[in-house]
Design a binder for these strands. Structure first.
Lengths: 203, 203
DNA sequence: AGGAGTTTGTGAACGGGAGAACAAAACGAG
DNA sequence: CTCGTTTTGTTCTCCCGTTCACAAACTCCT
């Protein structure tokens, strides 16, 4: 998030910024921002602030966006389709090297300039392209099997969009994004507002 | 998440479950699960466990999924397209009532059985359908303007997929989902593994 | 009926993140 | 050179979520 904010500031022509400004742009408290940055090193100048370009480079280096990360996406339904086309991945240093789907009827399609290939090709794609990150956009029932296969093929980080809990070996990273749970959280607060307008729930 | 897990158990024919089982299914600690459920009330039976159907209904009622929530999606690019078609929304009680885009060249399209309409129609759609939840799937530069317009139209909960911090008045709920930040977090841990294999960073 | 075995609900301890506050450092004016 | 101003880096404190541990409560078997 700080990197995003810094890129925005750089595009606006800002060369120097204080923790207060950067924190406001990123939407956090300035003390928290300074503490977070201090874990990376001491890249600010007291009395002056942070050099936007320098800090931007340091954060980018630290979090690894200087690399180009190859990614495979499994499950080319609606969501997989959108992820394959999502420009935010490319601009953040991620390169989608393959789209896989278990359904043979989808293997004719070309999505985002890539052939949709058979899930059976996973192992060769992973080893040929040195892929370490996989994205699961399948239905929930298939997610665990896909994850197992990914791990066996050598993938060590998984981004899971299926609404299921994945069991993976030690050392494999998993992050889960559940689109409808986010909406449910909003709906919950909406309901609270409607049930007890302006007052705390006491039942 | 607990509701998801309960639905899964119900589909498997399970009628009763212990906190231990449900916690394992949902991927959390059993003590945490019991404490979370205790905030809703005392719906379990000591020595027996929880009745799956009963608990399922109680959670559904509490979080508001018994309602049918109308939703508008603004920004019908790749992501908006996928969200409009995403079956997970419908099955969780959300109904997409309109798709809006500021680009007139997109107004011809029909996505997920709905016409893509002009962003100008926001106010009438919101009042006609009593919409309180809006989804922003626009580029980052447009997000704040869309949010302002949504708030003015009467929307009180916003799910933001654009990578920007939204400023909204008190009382308006905002949740942010940033797809590429999730990948960046995975890439960060990947880099750490590569730089210091099997050892802690000490620099 | 009574005891053994389970499982919930909750009080207490632990850990970690977030904000307030302050010392250290840099810069500029006189 | 010195003093005042600004802003970082860091410590201290507070608060909240998580986990442990145990009493209360329920079932089943004898």
């Amino acid at each position: 998030m700080y990197l995003r904010a810094l890129i925005g500031l750089a595009e606006d022509g800002t060369t120097t910024c204080s923790s207060e400004e950067l924190a406001a742009t990123a939407g956090v408290n300035s003390a928290k921002l300074r503490k977070d940055l201090s874990y990376l090193g001491s890249y600010g100048t007291r009395g002056v602030g942070y050099d936007v370009e320098y800090l931007r480079y340091q954060i980018a280096r630290e979090i690894g966006v200087t690399h180009d990360w190859p990614v495979v996406i499994v499950g080319i339904g609606n969501l997989g389709h959108a992820l394959a086309n999502y420009s935010g991945f490319r601009s953040r240093g991620f390169r989608v090297v393959a789209l896989l789907d278990a359904d043979p009827t989808r293997h004719d399609e070309v999505v985002a300039g890539l052939d949709v290939r058979s899930f059976e090709d996973l192992e060769s794609i992973v080893s040929d392209n040195d892929v370490s990150i996989g994205v699961i956009a399948t239905p929930a029932v298939a997610a665990q099997a896909v994850a197992d296969r990914m791990v066996a093929a050598g993938i060590t980080s998984i981004l899971n969009f299926a609404p299921s809990v994945l069991a993976v070996p030690e050392g494999v990273g998993v992050r889960k994004v559940d689109l409808s749970i986010e909406l449910q959280i909003l709906a919950y607060h909406e309901q609270r507002k409607a049930v007890a307008p302006g007052s705390e729930d006491a039942s």
